[in-house]
Amino acid sequence: MSRLLEVEALEVSFGAASAVRGASLALDRGETLCLVGESGCGKSVTALAVMGLLARNASRGAARLSFDGQDLRGLDERGMSRLRGNRMAMIFQEPMTSLNPAYTVGSQMAEVMLRHRGGTRAAAMARAEDLLGRVRITSPAMRLGQYPHQLSGGLRQRVMIAMALMCDPELLIADEPTTALDVTVQAQILRLLLDLQKDLGLAMLLITHDLGVVARVAHRVAVMYAGEVVETAAAADLFARPTHPYTRGLLACVPVPGKVARGAALGSIAGVVPRLGPGFSGCGFRDRCGEATAACGGTIARASAGEGHDYLCRLPPGWRAGAGAAP
């Protein structure tokens, strides 16, 4: 497998507020990387920064931001628009509002193809029909002429997925694609994404706060907190040996049948993700961390907990609650 996406020390700020503070992640071809973390930790902003879709008042900087060896930092809007929808595609959390209400499903899908690959409208429509079938929408030919308001949320999200696949992208970024849907539909959409990823060899960056989703689909996981990636590991490794206190806290919040005793209290992490300014230093989690000491206010080095598993904390790998509190 080869590297498709590399992000190093990504910084995004909106005026005086930093949304992403030095986040790094890498994605190989055909790999699914889950980006997890609670609301407001910078997951979506990271994805939008990669796609070049940040709002105008945002400023972006990175030590490295490359897609298939091409440096995205130097690309202007025109250059980025050649990649978007073509080699990298994105689907969003809000299927109800992400399609243009004024145009048919078919015309919205076809225009992606016409923009990047040219060809006839008929050919683009045929491709759209084919893909609607692939995302398991019934009677795709009829759907092409329908408007978004005639479709349910689940169908709209399938249309969004099909539309993202129009030009056979190498990278698909999915920003909480199932959050706004009914539970039964969530499972179907997730299964669909998983199958498509395997069949088409897509690299997928899946943003979620649902660890159940992570366990089912992720090859690797990056845990984000307050704009930083605090732990990265292969999925199985992360669930077996979570090392960063935040990751452990997150996992403790999820009931696991057979592992968590019936009637036992579920974990929770008190407080919310802090809004950090650019001058902030030290560990962003220290105010909510049970293991925090004065040393957490200093610079924290990235530590390794094994092959492809690193984390951002001064505690040693395999620390036990209370035991590692001494500086």
């Binding site: 796609m51 879709l53 929808g85 992400s98 399609l99 992606v112 923009r115």
Partner: peptide, 9 residues
Amino acid sequence: RTARAKGLS
């Protein structure tokens, strides 16, 4: 945002 993500002009 979707239109931009599609790379439209």
